[in-house]
Amino acid sequence: MKLCFFGSSLVSSYWNGAATYYRGLLKEIARLGYDITFYEPDAFERQAHRDIADPPWARVRVYPATSDGWQSALDKAARSADLLVKASGVGVFDAELEAAVIDVPSKALRLYWDVDAPATLDAIAARPDHHLRRAIPRYDLVLTYGGGDPVVTAYRGVGARDCVPIYNALDPQTHFPVTPVDKLGCDLGLLANRLPDREARIEQFFLDVAARMPERQFVLGGSGWESKGTPSNVRKVGHVGTGDHNAFFASGLATLNVNRDSMARYGFSPPTRVFEAAGGGACLITDAWVGIDSFLEPGQEVLVAASGDEVAEHLAALALDRARAIAERARKRILAHHTYRHRALQFSHLIEGISTKTEAAE
């Protein structure tokens, strides 16, 4: 089955938090026999910041970030695809692509794959004339990488035929324990790009904690923080490519996860960092969100904090032997239940079900 996928980028994680989700999931989907072509725009300097070569399990087609560029790419995809996927957050011509994917002549099933469903649904709710209100009912299926029942209910409320979360997960071949690196050593590390709907939470759960604990060392990785004022015990290391993720997770006593505002509100939206950090052998501290216990057991496999004060309390009480024990339990849980192999099988079963219904209807 030929799957043509329009997303932000497969080959670059630069300003592209969905990269490891795409890579882990599509690699495993390809192993199930799908023929994958990934279409991505030449935008936001991502091609200049590639962190992987074109993978052997997917063809990568980079198109110009222009009106002619995306239209030509879609025309080519539509002619060959059995499955035509438009992911949210491509970054350029999103609205145009989301409308065109369901109008372009093709034999393909059309899927909308939302990698930021809480934010998308908030935008739809705020605008009665939002273009997705017209588009979503025409897609054969909506997939999301999080959100649980609240997201499913909301998407069905705007006319989705069906909506199924396919959660982030771990690619064990990409994220695994390694030897710590001195330059990344710290008591608490955070790997997150600077985004408007997360910055205030990062101030509360990370920067304020650093200011209150001057005797501890903190490392902040991710793009956009260069101009941000931070306490003197916070070391900013800039963009961290996927090849350096394992060293980042291995080098701190603990790693912090901070959800974006909308994801925290909806719950059931574990970002990639949760699974990547666990896979890399990190002791994870996360801000509180509904559904965390569906993935990791609080207190045993993850430490949960409802405020910056609670982050500080966890960090103050965390000895190295306990941190290692929490990390090991988390890694075992993720490997047993939350790898991209598990998610790919879920995806394949969904597509088989839709294809069977379509054939029966014909």
Rank of each mutant, 00 (worst) to 15 (best):
F5A: 05
W15T: 13
E40V: 04
I52Q: 08
A53K: 08
R59W: 00
R59K: 11
A77M: 05
K86C: 13
G91T: 04
G91Q: 03
D94E: 14
L97I: 11
V104N: 06
P105V: 09
A108L: 06
L111Q: 05
P118N: 14
T120M: 10
L121N: 02
A123D: 12
I124V: 15
R133P: 00
A135Q: 09
R138N: 07
V152P: 07
T153W: 13
T153Q: 15
G157P: 07
R161G: 06
R161D: 01
I166K: 04
Y167G: 02
P172R: 05
V178Y: 00
G185A: 15
D187S: 14
G189C: 11
L191D: 02
A210L: 07
M213H: 06
M213L: 15
V219M: 08
L220I: 08
K236F: 08
G243F: 04
H245A: 13
H245V: 05
Y266Q: 02
T272W: 01
V274E: 04
C283I: 02
G291A: 06
I292Y: 05
P298W: 01
P298K: 01
Q300G: 11
Q300M: 04
E301L: 04
A305W: 10
A306C: 09
D309Y: 07
E310M: 12
E313D: 13
H314A: 11
H314F: 14
A319D: 12
L320Q: 07
A323S: 09
R324P: 10
E328D: 14
R331P: 10
K332E: 13
E352T: 12
T358N: 01
A360E: 12
A360V: 11
